[in-house]
């Protein structure tokens, strides 16, 4: 059981880091935001593993849910600005 959980944790961590890298490197802002939400989501699973169920719930709701929603809410209002500052001109 312990090794299973350990293995799963490891996979989670790696996935999370991968998602985080996508979030900061991907050229497409919506993808970045979604990746960031994914990071939060995985983090909340991690919290469960770490025996923090209430934190997990909060993180899932706020970190991956509400925050992502807020991002898209704002994104919809800044059409045209997504790529600003992308190229080092």
């Amino acid at each position: 059981m312990s090794s299973l959980i350990n293995g799963m944790t490891l996979v989670l961590c790696v996935t999370m880091i991968g998602a985080a890298l996508v979030a900061i490197r991907d050229k497409r802002l919506p993808i970045a935001i979604l990746a960031s939400g994914l990071v939060s989501l995985i983090a909340s699973i991690l919290f469960l593993v770490l025996a923090a169920p209430d934190v997990a719930m909060t993180e899932a709701a706020i970190g991956s849910g509400l925050t992502t929603f807020l991002f898209f809410f704002v994104l919809a209002r800044v059409r045209g600005g997504e790529q600003d500052g992308a190229d080092h001109d």
């Binding site: 900061i24 802002l29 970045a32 939060s40 983090a43 993180e59 925050t67 991002f71 997504e82």
Partner: peptide, 21 residues
Amino acid sequence: TNRNLLRMIVAFCIADTGVNI
């Protein structure tokens, strides 16, 4: 490294998550 405001905020979100973990 990201000059786009939204991207910076995304990055901070990730850092926040990291802190929480």
